Simulated assay, not measured.
Amino acid sequence: MPEPDQTPPRATDTPGLEAEVRALREELSFLRRHRMFVIYQSVPRILFFRFAVGMAAGLGTVIGATVLLSVIIWALSQIEFLPIIGEWSAQIAQQIDAAVNGAD
Rank of each mutant, 00 (worst) to 15 (best):
R22W: 01
R35H: 09
A19V: 02
S42W: 07
T14Q: 08
P44Q: 02
R10L: 11
E20C: 03
S42E: 11
T7V: 06
R10I: 04
P44K: 02
P15Y: 00
M36K: 07
F37A: 03
R10M: 09
V38E: 06
S42N: 14
P44M: 03
F49P: 00
F48S: 06
F30Y: 07
F49E: 04
L47D: 05
Y40I: 05
A57V: 14
A23W: 00
V43M: 13
M36R: 10
R45S: 06
E26P: 01
G16I: 00
L47C: 05
R50G: 00
L47P: 00
M1A: 15
P15M: 03
I46L: 05
S29Q: 13
P2T: 08
P44A: 01
R50A: 09
M1D: 13
R33E: 14
V53K: 11
Q41C: 05
L31Y: 07
L28K: 05
P8F: 11
L47K: 11
P15A: 02
Q41V: 00
E18T: 15
Q41E: 14
R22H: 09
L24R: 10
V53F: 13
H34I: 03
E18H: 08
V21M: 12
P8Y: 10
M55A: 15
D13Q: 01
T12C: 07
P2K: 10
R35F: 12
D13N: 02
S29T: 09
P8H: 08
I46F: 04
M36P: 00
L17K: 01
P44T: 02
L24N: 13
I46M: 03
A19P: 00
F49R: 03
F51Y: 12
P9L: 11
R22A: 14
F37E: 09
V43H: 10
R50P: 00
I46T: 03
L28M: 09
T14E: 05
M55D: 04
F49C: 03
P2H: 06
P15N: 01
D13Y: 01
G54K: 08
A19F: 00
F49L: 08
Y40M: 11
R35A: 07
F30T: 15
E26S: 08
M36N: 06
D5T: 12
V38T: 06
Q6N: 08
V38S: 01
I46A: 02
R45C: 05
A57W: 06
